[in-house]
């Protein structure tokens, strides 16, 4: 192609003024990519045309500008900058609405968890108390079992002899048994029936050795759960006797209050 001929054919002017056909336009644009002089010719005519238009430009009606500005200001959605802002606002809105939901959810969660904590705390307190009761009960039962086992062992021990203490004239219904291991000197007392005493009184077990009393220990009358009481040891005993004494008695026996007595069968 002779590009000079092409340039001077009028195609440049035809193209710039919008009079070229679609095929002519396509060809022109393609050739512009190949011939810088074609672009230069186009640009030159464009500048002349532009200069001519500006030099002869009338004053545009004043009202139009504000109308146009009003128009573009009313187009926030199509405006990419504004739409960015709108997108951000939407994001913010959804963020803040999300935050509101989060806040609401956390308040609900706080209330629910507070209620649950309160409920669980109360349950824990109850369970702890119940557990302690159970433990206490267990300990009591353990002790009782141990005592009963001990009692059983004592009763079944061939070395242990049993001395029945029978009611004296002052307390004919009273009775008790002494389990006495003369080898080990251990003395156990099993109360069968002894009346309740005033709070300032206690029963006291004595061993009578050669007519002299030996303190084998003070004890309180038991309720229904009668168990064998471990008393003080004694190597020797001619007889055992129970008297009523003042609480914490340290003196000798008050023999006029002799309740029960039994002779050791040695």
């Amino acid at each position: 192609m002779n590009i000079e001929e092409y340039i001077s054919s009028g195609i440049v002017e035809s193209y710039v003024l919008g009079l070229a056909s679609d095929e002519e336009r396509a060809e022109f644009e393609k050739l512009c990519g190949q011939y810088p002089e074609l672009v230069a010719a186009r640009n030159s005519f464009e500048l002349s045309l532009e200069k001519q238009a500006f030099d002869n430009a009338p004053k545009a009606p004043v009202s139009g500008k504000q109308k146009f500005l009003d128009f573009i200001n009313q187009q926030p959605v199509i405006n990419p900058e504004s739409s960015k802002i709108i997108a951000m606002e939407n994001t913010n809105a959804s963020k803040s609405s999300g935050f509101r939901w989060l806040a609401a959810a956390s308040v609900i969660l706080f209330i629910v968890s507070g209620w649950l904590a309160y409920k669980f705390y109360n349950e824990t307190v109850t369970l702890k108390s119940e557990l302690q009761n159970t433990k206490d009960e267990q300990a009591k039962l353990d002790n009782r079992l141990k005592t009963l086992e001990e009692q059983q062992r004592v009763i079944n021990d061939p070395k242990v002899s049993v001395i029945n203490l029978t009611g004296m004239p002052k307390a004919p219904a009273s009775s008790a048994s002494i389990y006495w291991d003369s080898t080990s000197s251990n003395v156990w007392l099993l109360v069968k029936n002894l009346p309740q005493l005033p709070n300032d009184k206690q029963y006291q077990l004595w061993a009578l050795i050669d007519g002299k009393p030996k303190d084998l220990g003070l004890f309180d009358p038991q309720g229904d759960n009668k168990i064998m009481l471990k008393m003080n040891n004694t190597q020797k005993a001619d007889a055992f006797a129970i008297t009523i004494e003042n609480r914490g008695n340290t003196g000798g026996p008050t023999l006029e209050d002799l309740q029960t007595m039994g002779k050791a069968k040695l």
Partner: peptide
């Protein structure tokens, strides 16, 4: 970029010539 200032500038500078066209 749909810059409003640029469009204002465009109107100020080109409206007369385009009105002539």
């Amino acid at each position: 970029q749909r810059n409003n200032q640029a469009f204002t500038y465009l109107y100020d500078n080109y409206s007369g010539a385009l009105y002539g066209i």
